[in-house]
Design a binder for these strands. Structure first.
Lengths: 130, 130
DNA sequence: AAGATAATAGTAATCATTATTATTAACAAA
DNA sequence: TTTGTTAATAATAATGATTACTATTATCTT
């Protein structure tokens, strides 16, 4: 049975107003403005809780720390190999690849994790200038 | 200019004979049999080198440490949500999703990282028994 | 208002990985 | 085959991200 907490509410709200998929550290620094004594552990625990409850999404890439997304609607992400930024990609779910994978696998396929690699519009623009 | 080293050769050979995508720790413990004084740092450095040179592949999942694959032929992986194992999935490259993603993105898409979630044949078998 | 307990702040611990450094091994040239 | 050069090593410390611990506080219930 999970009790309400103002810290968790603040974390949740911060995430719903951000679209750059901040890290726990960034969330910590920002929530600190409203709760100067908040602990990084509290941030991590609440991010886990919110993720479990399906209220936010956790994004793990091979580079850098985990990031968090307040938008739970199904969509994909592009990881910019230049600046390290993580951008939204509003593409419909490609769940047909699960079916395809299922035909090549003796076990059971229930889902997939996909992120794209590339260059964000900003980095691309800078490249052309030079 | 990269010098030959017996330790690196041993790591490489160990990986080409394993198909369960071991972690750096597992590789360390096994290579230790031939090189009792080998250091974990040496294992990590050589795994990075081999990955850079395209001789092995590094697999990062959101759960647990990185794993390494001696098979560099293009293929995918299934992460068993039951036992945590990582299995090969010999499916052709689904690079058409890059093109699809490109149509929804202002930047540039150069590739994708995908792994599937599911249950391996062994865990599935156990489940049916019970 | 009082009691029960989940959540917190503060901090220590853990885990995976990378960095540092003195020593050793691999290769090249004499 | 010795010698010189330099990359690779072993040993260890340091880092970064995350989780665990614990006494205190906030939230909810009665």
């Amino acid at each position: 049975m999970t009790k309400h907490s103002r810290q968790r509410e603040c974390i949740k709200e911060f995430l719903t107003n951000r679209f750059d998929h901040p890290t726990a550290e960034t969330i910590y620094l920002n929530v600190k403005k409203e709760f100067p004594n908040i602990s990084l552990g509290t941030v991590y625990r609440n991010l886990s809780l919110l993720t479990e409850h399906g209220e936010i999404r956790k994004l793990s890439t091979s580079i850098g720390p985990d990031r968090f997304d307040g938008n739970t609607a199904p969509h994909y992400h592009v990881l910019c190999t230049q600046c390290g930024g993580v951008l939204d990609l509003n593409m419909e779910s490609i769940d047909h690849i699960n079916t395809l994978a299922g035909t090549k696998f003796e076990g059971e396929i229930s889902g997939h994790v996909t992120y794209f690699l590339g260059k964000c519009p900003e980095c691309l623009k800078k490249e052309i200038k030079n």
